[in-house]
Design a protein around this nucleic acid. Structure first.
Lengths: 232, 232
DNA sequence: TTGACTTGGAGAGTACTACTCCCCAATATG
DNA sequence: CATATTGGGGAGTAGTACTCTCCAAGTCAA
């Protein structure tokens, strides 16, 4: 497969592929001569992965690079992987402004029985986010945070349950999955909001707390197609 | 309060405040003369809100503007508000590429008992995200999606429970809260991952599924301060 | 063999965003 | 009255993700 064919297979312009090569996010093809290189399925997958991480996952080029580096390198330690994905998605943490709030956040974590490494920067991030919410007039109480954390424990259960057994695959799955599922969760939250508020407006009433995990039927009823805004 | 004082109170440079005024996200102060204007507490709050939405919420200037417009205008309808917040956070939806997947997404929504307006672009977004995850090698099954949606129903419960009763306040709360809580949830998911994987490495074992919502104690044990990367 | 086309490599240019700087005349302020 | 500040506005800057242009070397079809 030549570069123009790779371009056709992925939908990315040749100029963009060259750019990815220069940036080091796409591995070079097998060089046949000074002006010819062969690309294969691994390149197609890689380009698709890059675009998924950047477009849907919202990662920057730099963040994408470090995610890919994590995926490529031999797995250091299992809990390190999650750290890589976490850091890649949201740059470095700004220094914590409020030490008292940080301390209370740690207390909250302990009270809820979570085991978190004491140097974890995620806690600093959480503290900053809670503070930012407050400065925006949204008081995120500890109780509310607890409800959110309960929900995220369930999400983590689902995340972990779907990780493949294979070592090398697991690495890629955890890192990429962490990034790609974030926007899905965000959209589902919006839909859950819709569902709850539709009930007070519409006829039937919403599903307040469905317990069962529904499987999709093989007989989809006729649905009007979603129009979707044409241009961006 | 003059502009330089507003700057001191918010930490935003005067040039930035002028920029916000030009961009229309900050309302002008009371004009005392051609070269003097008075700003008040409402301006301080507004600037803080702008910075929270942009820095923590990750909104662009344009998205921030539409969120603020939604907050300022008289509430159209309750379910409209959520739509505004949803749209503000993630631009317009790209056209759906796969109609079959869209249809299955709708079926899934129905099977789970959610009431969603049939023209909802969020469904298109969800479809695209699931497809993007697949093209990145992450197969988000309907069962897994169900687990995620269960968790998001709980999140939505917590969201709705904390909305104040006052009409005007509720508007602001829902829109801003939707935006500001997203990053919190993201961080909590990372922490939940940490907790689960720390158990297989550390000593005590993680809290697999804590049921109780813990309140924070008034006697926080001494915690080593989180260092945090100094520079960005 | 020849001539159109493609390739890798690299520099420069573009579009967009969120500021940031600079200048001005008209006031405030000491 | 001298100095400083203000609002207003245009222009400049830094960062990001491309996109374009050029080039000589190499490939392919006729």
């Amino acid at each position: 497969m030549r570069m123009s064919e790779l371009s056709a297979a992925t939908g990315a312009p040749v100029a963009t592929l060259k750019f990815y090569l220069r940036e080091g996010v796409l591995h070079p093809g097998e060089s046949l001569s000074r002006t010819q290189a062969r690309y294969d399925e691994s390149h197609v997958e890689r380009v698709r992965l890059i675009r998924a991480l950047m477009d849907t996952g919202g990662l920057s080029m730099a963040a994408t690079r470090s995610v890919l580096a994590a995926v490529d390198d031999p797995p250091p330690e299992r809990h390190e992987l999650l750290g890589v994905a976490a850091r890649a998605l949201t740059g470095d943490t700004a220094p914590v402004s409020d030490p008292e709030l940080t301390e209370r956040t740690w207390s909250w974590i302990h009270e809820r029985g979570w085991h978190i490494a004491p140097d974890e920067t995620l806690v600093a991030r959480l503290t900053n986010q809670v503070q930012a919410a407050r400065s925006a007039g949204i008081d995120v109480t500890w109780e509310r945070l607890g409800q959110y954390a309960d929900a995220m424990d369930r999400v983590a259960d689902a995340d972990i349950a779907s990780v493949p057994v294979d070592r090398g695959e697991a690495l890629r799955y955890v890192v990429v999955g962490t990034v790609m599922v974030d926007p899905v969760l965000q959209t589902l939250r919006r839909l859950a909001h819709q569902n709850r508020s539709a009930g007070s407006v519409g006829k039937g009433g919403p599903q307040p707390r469905p317990a069962a995990t529904a499987a999709v039927s093989s007989s989809p009823d006729q649905r009007p197609e979603t129009p979707g805004q044409p241009a961006r």
